[in-house]
């Protein structure tokens, strides 16, 4: 067997009559940055939600590292090694940057049912929290409240949280959506730096970013994968050019 971190087999999901995921089979190879592209409404977020467990597929199977996780809960998938950043920022808004990281660290430590010792002044948690922030270069902002952060900074924090559990697989749903050009460049650099450390499935509309980062690209149109291959293969693919790239470039 190949070294696939993630394998989808004939995944299907309907919303009423709409086939949001239409017989999707996909393999994501270990250590690679794999981009998932497709026009608006193609079903990219829906697919990622099924991989993470927020949505249940109607049929089909999902394998993480060879083991079926089709019926596993979101929390358990996170523990098994999947991290996710959402299309719409999804962080702890009432907490500070460091506090966000510390909550992730608490979960990572597995010692959650502790009722007496204060968490936010625990040196090992603070250290762990800073380590989480350092990966995205946010340690200077540790004490800022999330509600005061710029949009791009929130995206960065969410990336840090997605990486906090040292996942096998990271699902990034348009991680730079809404961030400014500088933040986008910085975020691209951070993601490039993760190459080899973990496996990434990246949804991104910005083709420059996609072609900079991705080693493999899958194209989703109307719920179905119409092509999968290296960036070169995809940019040569006539179907893709017609369905997608042509309208974009």
């Amino acid at each position: 067997m190949k070294n696939n971190v993630l394998e989808l087999r004939s995944l299907r999901k309907k919303f009423g009559a709409l086939k949001a995921t239409d017989d999707v089979s996909l393999e994501v190879e270990k250590g690679k940055i794999h981009a998932l592209i497709g026009p608006n409404g193609a079903g990219k977020t829906t697919l990622i939600s099924q991989i993470f467990g927020n949505l249940k597929p109607d049929s089909g199977d999902i394998f993480l590292d060879g083991k079926s996780i089709t019926n596993t809960s979101v929390a358990d998938r996170a523990l098994l090694g999947i991290g996710r950043s959402f299309q719409i920022s999804n962080v702890l808004m009432d907490f500070s940057v460091l506090e966000n990281a510390i909550v992730a660290k608490i979960s990572h430590s597995q010692e959650t049912f502790r009722f007496f010792r204060p968490a936010f002044s625990d040196p090992s948690l603070i250290e762990g929290g800073f380590a989480i922030l350092k990966r995205v270069g946010m340690e200077q902002m540790a004490d800022r409240k999330v509600s005061d952060l710029a949009h791009g900074e929130r995206r960065l924090l969410e990336l840090a949280l997605a990486l906090a559990m040292e996942p096998l697989l990271v699902l990034l749903d348009e991680p730079m959506a809404g961030a400014g050009p500088e933040d986008t460049i910085f975020m691209t650099k951070v993601i490039a730096g993760l190459r080899g450390q973990t496996t990434i499935l990246l949804i991104e509309h910005d083709m420059d970013v996609v072609f900079q980062l991705a080693e493999r690209i899958s194209v989703l149109v109307e719920g179905a994968v119409i092509a999968s291959g290296t960036p070169d293969e995809i940019s040569q693919n006539r179907l893709v050019r017609e369905a997608y790239l042509g309208s974009d470039q």
Partner: peptide, 11 residues
């Protein structure tokens, strides 16, 4: 503050 983020953290 955000139940879905907590869940995504594995809790």
């Amino acid at each position: 503050s955000n139940e879905s983020r907590v869940e995504a953290m594995g809790l």
